[in-house]
């Protein structure tokens, strides 16, 4: 016999369900949008990609970005550059952590993320008290665009970004404050030590590329999230998510 609470909730859910006509309309919208998304994806893999980052989905992201733009004060600071001028996560994570600690104290613990792209560090400061539920895990995410000419040629890194964040933090960043470039991230640790990662990347330079992935990934293992070929050059986007050990954790 069904539990009375279950019965009550199921009755409510069936009354609250959309009618057949609404379902049919929703199904048609989804079919149209899936075809548009597929067309965009195919175009991105073509030799001369027709890049259109402001899709319906991107507009949804833009809505989130607008919300964040209101809520977050994004502060740009000069990079704590290393001596080579080619910062990467390994070389600069200590610097970013120090910066993170200092600025987090300055903003009374309201620092939410740190991003480093093309020689600049951006910080997400949330003036509101954080009441969301998260398990306290912190992550470093390295996104790299690499290219090569020919299948035997070595890979060369052409763009990269590093983000420090924590679990369940919704991130929508315009790297270097370029309006049309976007990094979206959301990470959730799952029970077997892996992470569910939703990520979006749209770049216009040095290569136009778009990716939208929702995967379960292993700690520290690079994952190819997009591939495109332009002329004789192949480009790939790799994303590596590493869980920071407690002693390395930023206090966000």
């Amino acid at each position: 016999m069904t539990d009375p609470l279950d019965r009550l909730l199921k009755d409510w859910a069936s009354r609250a369900a959309a009618d057949d006509k609404s379902f049919a309309a929703l199904e048609r919208n989804i079919a149209t949008q899936m075809r548009e998304a597929r067309h965009r994806s195919s175009s991105a893999l073509a030799e001369t990609p027709a890049f259109s980052p402001w899709s319906r989905l991107a507009w949804f992201s833009l809505g989130a970005a607008t919300t964040l733009a209101i809520a977050l004060a994004v502060v740009r600071l000069p990079l704590l550059a290393n001596s080579t001028g080619t910062p990467d996560l390994v070389q600069s994570s200590a610097s970013v952590h120090r910066l993170f600690d200092e600025v987090n104290r300055l903003f009374a613990g309201n620092l939410r993320w740190v991003a480093q792209s093309d020689g600049a560090v951006e910080l997400g400061i949330d003036p509101d008290k954080d009441e969301s539920e998260h398990d306290g895990s912190h992550f470093a995410v390295h996104i790299a665009v690499v290219s090569r000419t020919g299948s035997r040629a070595p890979w060369k890194q052409v763009w990269e970004s590093d983000v420090l964040t924590r679990s369940e933090q919704v991130i929508d960043i315009a790297p270097n404050q370029k309006r049309d470039d976007r990094i979206g991230l959301w990470i959730y640790p799952v029970a077997d030590g892996r992470f569910a990662v939703d990520s979006r990347l749209s770049l216009n330079a040095p290569i136009r590329i778009y990716s939208d992935s929702s995967d379960v990934v292993e700690d520290g293992k690079p994952t190819a999230i997009a591939v495109t070929i332009v002329g004789s050059k192949e480009y790939r986007v790799y994303q590596t998510v590493t869980r920071l050990k407690p002693k390395e954790d930023g206090p966000c």
Binding site: S22, I30, Q33, M34, S41, F60, D212, S213, S214
Partner: peptide, 15 residues
């Protein structure tokens, strides 16, 4: 709910 449902299936198709 309609808006999110659409986004979910676009994500499904992309992923």
């Amino acid at each position: 709910a309609d808006e999110i449902t659409q986004e979910v299936f676009i994500r499904m198709a992309n992923g």
